[in-house]
Simulated scan of single mutants.
Amino acid sequence: MRSAGLDLVKWTAILTMVADHLRFLWPAAEGLFVLGRLAFPLFCLAIAVNVGRSRSGALFTRGNARYLGWLLVFAVLCEGPYRWLDNGSQTFSVIPTLALGLLVAWGVHHPQALARLGGIAAALLAALASERLMYGVPGVLLPGACLIARSRGGASWLLPCLLAMAGNLTNSWLRDHLLHPTTLLVLAIAAVALPLGGWLLRRDDWRIVPVGRWGYAFYPLHLLAIKGLQGLIQA
């Protein structure tokens, strides 16, 4: 069943992600980077909601295979546009982090041994490849932590909020400038992203254009569009 609240979460994540990437057109727009820190926690929350809506134990479904398959395909397809736009990045695009996060969330939600082993393997792989993963180990653990918090509520939301903040500290500049105003703003935005997402999820009475599978293709296409505009501006 379509959820307007979930679509609101996805739209907010998409729009703040695009705002963040507009920095490649206006490098001095530091505020866009700060605003963009909303995007990743909201994408992780969307994964947690999608996983939580399935029946616990129903791991081997066509929908789950399609979900992981799309993420893996676009992890490959997005790397070229991402690297072309940000050739100085030391990490992969965000898609591998989300794919591993999905495996962790499945390990939390489904009781099968294969789901649990997959989640553990994803976390171990994240630890081994932490330098190359955007948002690192905290980012991979975040969807699973959101799933736990949604089922338990209350103070359990503290863990995903802390993971959202810790994920940003995998950025070496932020980590080396902990007391800089930009770092403090980034951590504050990361901390409030999930409460904001929770509020959006409850807005099921709003009318909103659904975010369909086109959302996967939007990621590489918007990177290519920004790179093209960057070329026009610099020409």
Rank of each mutant, 00 (worst) to 15 (best):
R37A: 00
G153M: 08
M134P: 01
P143R: 03
S3C: 09
L223T: 07
V34G: 02
A28S: 12
N171A: 13
L59F: 10
A217T: 11
A126Y: 02
N50E: 14
V186W: 05
G198L: 05
A193P: 09
I189K: 04
L221A: 15
L98G: 05
P160V: 04
S54W: 00
L174T: 06
H21E: 04
G57R: 03
A127G: 13
G139R: 02
V140A: 05
Q230V: 09
C44S: 14
D204F: 03
S89A: 14
G154H: 07
Q234E: 15
D20K: 01
V104Q: 07
E131W: 11
T182R: 12
C161A: 13
D205F: 11
F218I: 12
A217V: 12
A235P: 10
L159V: 15
K227D: 13
A113H: 01
L25F: 00
W11H: 13
L187I: 14
P111M: 02
L103W: 05
F60D: 15
C44K: 02
L77H: 12
A46Q: 09
R213Q: 09
G197P: 10
I189M: 14
K10D: 10
L141H: 09
L32G: 04
S156L: 13
S54N: 11
I14N: 09
R2I: 08
N87F: 11
F218S: 10
A190H: 11
V209S: 10
V108T: 06
T97N: 10
L22Q: 01
R207L: 11
T91H: 11
G198T: 03
P210E: 07
G139Q: 08
Y135T: 04
T183A: 02
S151E: 13
P81E: 07
A29I: 03
G52Q: 01
A29N: 05
E30V: 12
S93G: 15
G212I: 01
G215S: 13
V211H: 02
D86G: 04
V18W: 10
A13Y: 07
P143C: 12
A48T: 08
